[in-house]
């Protein structure tokens, strides 16, 4: 092999190595770190990742918000009008968190069917509904008690 060819070969090999390494890392990171979105109906049907964080979204049920005295712990119910999930959260709720409004929470299901949220998100616009929540409500419509 001429020196130029050899050099080129080394270059190509290096690039190929880099690309395959990057792809491998990418796939691992991706597999471990994506988060699924589930609606209350799906959670009720046991369709959720166990021992792993996922996003639960829906409406905060009217009158469901409870504060545990002398702590920052709250419990509320997230509903898509077909199924309910009780969420427990300790910390400060976002400004636009309100009963009867859309919400997305991130956390895991505990063994006693409580969703332990690490994070609660409500959007920064009155008129804005998180698209996942809108879709979840839409999907739950046929079985919704309101429509019976």
């Amino acid at each position: 092999m001429t020196p130029t060819r050899k050099k080129r070969l080394i270059m190509v090999l290096l690039v190929a190595l880099g690309v395959s390494l990057a792809t491998a890392i990418f796939l691992t990171a991706f597999k471990d770190n994506i988060m699924f979105f589930k609606s209350p109906t799906e959670v009720a049907a046991q369709d959720f990742p166990v021992n792993r964080n996922f996003r639960l979204g829906g409406m905060v049920k009217d009158g469901s918000m409870q504060r545990i005295p002398d702590s920052l712990k709250v419990q509320f119910i997230v509903t898509d009008f077909a199924a309910d999930v009780t969420v427990e959260y300790e910390g400060i709720l976002p400004d636009l968190f309100r009963e009867g409004q859309g919400v997305v929470t991130i956390g895991q299901m505990s063994e006693d069917d409580l969703f332990i949220a690490e994070e609660v998100l409500a959007k920064h616009d009155e008129n804005y509904m998180p698209p996942e929540v809108a879709d979840a409500l839409e999907a739950a419509k046929p079985q919704s008690k309101e429509y019976e």
Binding site: A22, I25, F26, A29, F30, D32, N33, I34, M35, F36, F37, K38, R55, E132, D135
Partner: peptide, 18 residues
């Protein structure tokens, strides 16, 4: 029809490695 989100864990790790 799969709803996922990709957040800090993924981006943070990838960016750190790169």
């Amino acid at each position: 029809n799969m709803k996922i989100s990709v957040g800090e864990p993924y981006f943070g790790l990838m960016f750190f490695l790169l």
